[in-house]
């Protein structure tokens, strides 16, 4: 190193809270120099600007949802703050008989709840099996899933549509149909929770087996209680996904307005035909969807972070 005797003033990437790093004692040199302060000031500036950029659209969304479509305009306008704050959009969404919003909300909630239960069971079974049990064809299954995963998802959309149609699960039956589609292949998304199961020591299983537990008992009584973080992560993901699905939902429920989910309904308000006057209603609907989902997510953020980082490291 050329700058042998220069004092390092900035230490990077070390999390203070995590306590991973021991303090390096360099008395006199560690006191906050002007340089250090300038660097920190710069970082704070960047973070504040980023925070504004990250939050601004959501704040705007909330502002515009309070602009009345009766006294002002339901379309897009050239100003941000409503001239008069009003709840008209929300009232229309929740009470007007032309609004299907509550129905859409209910549909999505039902789909999300079923998915959260069924998908979690599927994912946990597959990931546990592939992680802990050894049997013929295990490698084959993993390779097949890998190859299948490289096909784009929408390729099979029409086939799935006609399969569902055969079962009478489109349009009027769109909700059970969507649940079926979301859940049927969900076992393929086993990677992250398999990664988690891989980290639980094998010796736990073995000692339980020696004590006479069957494999099913090991799964239910020993591994499951330990797997709480990944179970919550899987439930969270399965619950959140249906709220944002437009593509399959619009295809399967096509033309049957009472059977839309929120994404399809709101998307149509913004983008189809002459729906400009619905812009503020879209904003209000967006707020009603985003608030509970965001609250749930932030409450369970810890588990999400665990899942995502674990998944990325395992690849």
């Amino acid at each position: 190193m050329s700058k042998k005797n220069e004092v390092p003033e900035v230490d990077i990437v070390i999390d203070h809270e995590a306590g991973v790093i021991r303090e390096v004692k360099q008395p006199g040199l560690r006191s906050k120099s002007g340089h250090e302060r300038r660097v920190n000031g710069g970082i704070y500036t960047v973070l504040v600007i980023m925070s504004i950029i990250w939050l601004a659209p959501f704040v705007f969304l909330v502002f515009q949802s309070f602009r009345s479509y009766i006294t002002e305009s339901g379309g897009m306008v050239a100003y941000l703050l409503p001239k008069q704050w009003s709840l008209d959009n929300y009232i229309w969404l929740l009470t007007d008989e032309k609004s299907h919003f509550l129905q859409w909300y209910g549909n999505t909630l039902i789909i999300a709840l079923f998915c959260a239960v069924i998908q979690t069971l599927m994912v946990l079974s597959v990931s546990y099996t592939l992680s802990r049990l050894r049997f013929k064809g295990r490698k084959l299954i993993m390779n097949v899933v890998l190859v299948l995963g490289m096909f784009p998802g929408f390729l099979t959309m029409i086939t799935l549509y006609f399969l569902l149609k055969q079962l009478g699960l489109t349009q009027q039956g769109a909700i059970p149909g969507l649940i079926l589609i979301y859940c049927a292949s969900s076992g393929m998304g086993y990677y992250i929770s398999k990664g988690f199961f891989d980290t639980i020591p094998k010796s736990l299983d073995e000692s339980a087996r020696i004590d006479g537990a069957t494999r099913a008992q090991v799964f239910m009584k020993i591994i499951m209680p330990l797997a709480k973080p990944i179970v919550i992560y899987t439930i969270l993901m399965a619950f959140m996904a249906p709220w944002g699905d437009y593509v399959f939902a619009s295809y399967v429920a096509f033309g049957s307005e009472p059977n839309y989910n929120v994404a399809v309904g709101l998307y149509r308000w913004v983008n189809v035909n002459d729906y400009q006057g619905f812009f503020t209603r879209f904003c209000a609907g967006g707020v009603l969807v985003a608030v509970p989902i965001t609250a749930l997510f932030l409450a369970l953020q810890k588990y999400y972070v665990e899942g995502v980082t674990g998944g990325a490291v395992k690849g």
Partner: peptide
């Protein structure tokens, strides 16, 4: 937490709004 907001809010709300 502020940054994570874009993950938490369903994309069809945030992206549609931003596109507008």
């Amino acid at each position: 937490t502020i940054l994570v907001m874009t993950i938490a809010i369903p994309q069809f709300v945030s992206l549609l709004y931003v596109s507008k």
